[in-house]
Design a protein around this nucleic acid. Structure first.
Length: 417
RNA sequence: GUGAGUGUAGCUCAAUCGGUAGAGCACUGGACUGUGGAUCCGGGGGUCGUGGGUUCGAACCCCAUCACUCACCCCA
């Protein structure tokens, strides 16, 4: 009986793993350059963390979370996003006493949705969170940092920014919008009428053609921001201009999680199918307090690794792979023993090398050398073992040059080629 | 949760009107007993997703079911 993997949870095979490693290595490098430190939190958290933090009415919590009972004691959940757990850890360890904290995380998240292009039940996110900084400068820094990360990876998704207001201005706006939408119920699609009650902001980016002209006239939150939000948003835009980071103001940009206030932003690409967002983030000034910590401003983003990998692939970026510098080919038993010995020496010297442990015909061993992408091949037999002299064969040009086995390490340099 | 499309070899796919399953790539052996990629010849590999039905006969038609993909919802 063949057993298959769980729907929406994918294997990342060796041929593709280099893509993930490159993304993660680059992210770690860029984050370190900006003063962010890695945090690792569990994949499982109390269900209540998400119910309270992300919001009980969000789709993520009420229909997409993997929830289970731990031997009938506690209600637990597989994490659907990274912010809540990070905030929980921040509070639990009293990190606020040491001033602002800039953290990042990398790891799997879980949402039980129908899989499609760029969306999976287990997916991987790279995220950052900055705690204790209310100033717009940190919003700017994060957006610029992400843009820089993308640039280094050879892609350039478009940045959309918006302000979703805060407790001072959003509630009043939502009521105004809801009233406005109800008055136009007959001309809107069924989905829009439902969303008017559930999540009126969502109505604004309805894609149904007949809704578009109507919605273009809807009251705009950006024009009704309170002074604090207005000033903050202007400063974010000014900061992005100062750094020459290109962006688009998108008044219809909405975030799916309840905790966002003020700045909301999203990087999108048309290489991703209908799930166009590769990264999304925003400010969550009330979240730390909601989860039992001291009043602490916060802002962060989450980036989808699968989606970023899709973009790199679409951009034609090759998958980096490590290759052995030399592949030992054995002609006989003496050569096999010699090869294993030399390989061990080189490996201890930090030089990647390989051999076909099966031995066998030379042709097969050469084929193996080619398959693993070796730079050079070196045939060893009784003659070479006795003389200490061999021929180093360039796998591309096929040229052979004499080499003393004792000099191999210095000839091949150090580290994997 | 809803809708559509697709299921044939490890991968990508073909098979006319319903007539009993094939190609390329990959793998493997040989041509070539100390030298890989090209060429030639050979080999292994299939419950045609699964179950049922129609038929003398089903990869093909019908029903059911499962899986995958894409889209909706929503989001990374």
């Amino acid at each position: 009986m063949k057993i298959n993997g769980v729907k929406g949870m994918n294997d990342i095979l060796p041929a593709q793993v280099g893509r993930w490693q490159e993304i993660e290595r680059m992210a770690r490098e860029v984050f370190a350059l900006h003063g962010y430190r890695e945090v690792r939190t569990p994949v499982v958290e109390p269900y209540a963390l998400y119910a309270r933090g992300v919001g009980e009415t969000t789709d993520i919590v009420n229909k997409e979370m993997y929830v289970f009972e731990d031997k009938g004691e506690d209600k637990l959940a597989l994490r659907p996003e990274g912010t809540a757990g990070t905030v929980r850890a921040y509070i639990e360890h009293g990190a606020h006493v040491e001033g602002p904290q800039k953290w990042f995380y990398i790891g799997p998240m879980f949402r039980r949705e129908r899989p499609q292009k760029g969306r999976y039940r287990q997916f991987h996110q790279i995220g950052v969170e900055a705690f204790g900084i209310a100033e717009p400068a940190i919003d700017v820094e994060q957006i610029a940092m992400l843009a820089d990360l993308f640039r280094r990876l050879g892609v350039a998704p478009v940045v959309h920014v918006n302000s979703v207001g805060d407790a001072a201005c959003r509630p009043a706006y939502l009521e105004e919008l809801r009233g406005w939408l109800r008055a136009r119920g007959e001309v809107l699609c069924a989905d829009c009428r439902e969303r008017t009650e559930k999540n009126p902001l969502r109505v604004l980016d309805c894609k149904v053609p007949s809704c578009q002209p109507v919605l273009a006239e809807a009251p705009r939150l950006l024009e009704r921001l309170c002074d604090g939000c207005r000033t903050h948003f202007d400063a974010v835009r000014q900061g992005l201009d100062d750094l020459s980071v290109p962006y688009q103001v998108n008044p219809r940009l909405v975030r799916g999680l309840d905790y966002y206030v003020r700045t909301a932003y999203e990087f999108t690409s048309d290489a991703l199918g209908s799930q166009s967002a590769v990264a999304g983030g925003g400010r969550y000034d009330g979240l730390v307090e909601t989860l039992g910590g001291p009043p602490t401003p916060g802002i962060g983003f989450g980036m989808g690794e699968e989606r970023l990998a899709l973009m790199l692939e679409a951009a034609g970026r090759p998958v980096p792979e490590s290759r052995p510098a030399v592949f030992f080919v054995s002609a006989d038993e003496a050569g096999r023993r010699e090869g294993l010995q030399r390989a061990t020496e080189l490996r201890r010297a930090g030089i990647a090398c390989d051999l076909d442990a099966r031995g066998g015909k030379l042709a097969r061993q050469f084929k193996q050398a080619e398959r693993v992408g070796a730079r050079y091949a070196l045939v060893l037999g009784a003659n070479e073992a006795a003389s200490g002299q061999a021929k180093l064969k360039d796998m591309v040009t096929r040229e052979e040059t004499p080499v003393a086995l004792a000099d191999l390490a210095s000839r091949l340099g150090t580290g994997p080629a």
